[in-house]
């Protein structure tokens, strides 16, 4: 009942590097989205990625989870250089994510959405599903239990059966987090999980992120615009601007970095 990520990460101690990107450059036609970016994520940390709109934050996550293939640079994952891989293969290695613009399965219930998050942990194949109910059914029950744990954790019991398309925005974001958590990821990528939320919702989401870090020891990459939130919940921060890295360090270091102040904190963002 484990995916490949579990074994990959088993010999990495807390505080050791889980993933690093090295000299990543990515462009679309003439647009340089990322230029020579390097940074790492160590096991168990919340690593914020900040920067103004269009800085390349989402592109960075897309490189990490395989949606984008950089023209230059390397990704190291759990101590190994990673070859070019498809996004679904990377999911099987224990990297889960949420999206800046919610990407839930709209027609499906909360429960089913989170159940799809268990995909990489389920091993029975289509023939077993079609004919041979035994093992498939057993697996279904086991994974359903896991999903119920996540539903309890995120306090969304009451919307278990609701088609997610009908949920308010804040709850949709929470269900999307649930789907990513269901994968029991080694590395969790969150692209603006609190965008568009009110203060109360942001506080809830921050609490969930910290709980995930604490309870499961998950390594988390977090893109977020609200500087207060970033300073509160992240261990280290990477700052991007126009596709270049202009700062990297603890929240305090970054806050006092002149280049960051000029480029990011100084200019009004959104």
């Amino acid at each position: 009942m484990k995916n490949h990520g579990t074994s990959l990460v088993s010999n990495i101690e807390p505080g050791q590097e889980v993933l690093s990107v090295q000299n990543i450059s990515l462009s679309f036609g003439g647009v340089k989205a990322l230029t020579d970016i390097s940074f790492d994520l160590v096991k168990g940390e919340v690593r914020a990625i900040i920067g103004p709109n269009g800085a390349g934050k989402s592109s960075m996550l897309n490189v990490i989870n395989g949606f984008y293939h950089p023209q230059e640079g390397e990704v190291f994952y759990c101590g190994q250089k990673r070859n070019a891989m498809k996004p679904h293969q990377i999911a099987h290695q224990g990297i889960a994510r949420t999206f800046q613009n919610i990407a839930l399965f709209k027609g499906m219930s909360t429960l089913d959405n989170i159940m799809t998050g268990r995909f990489t942990h389920m091993k029975t194949n289509v023939l077993q599903h079609a004919f041979w109910r035994g093992p498939a059914e057993q697996e279904e029950i086991e994974n359903r239990l896991k999903v119920e744990e996540i539903i309890d954790f995120l306090e969304i019991q009451t919307i278990r059966k609701t088609p997610v398309g009908r949920l308010p925005y804040g709850l949709q974001k929470r269900v999307e987090l649930g789907r990513a958590l269901a994968a029991e990821p080694v590395l969790l990528l969150l692209d603006e999980p609190m965008a568009g939320m009110n203060i109360e919702e942001k506080e809830d989401m921050s609490r969930f992120i910290l709980d995930v870090q604490e309870e499961f020891g998950t390594t988390i990459a977090l893109i977020e615009h609200d500087m207060g939130v970033v300073m509160d919940i992240s261990d280290r921060v990477v700052v991007l601007d126009y596709g270049k890295k202009i700062g990297d360090g603890t929240p305090d270091e970054v806050r006092n970095n002149q280049a960051v102040i000029d480029a990011y904190l100084g200019v009004p963002h959104e």
Partner: peptide, 8 residues
């Protein structure tokens, strides 16, 4: 996209 991201 979302389907790919969960490993499908």
């Amino acid at each position: 996209q979302a389907a790919l991201s969960v490993g499908i």
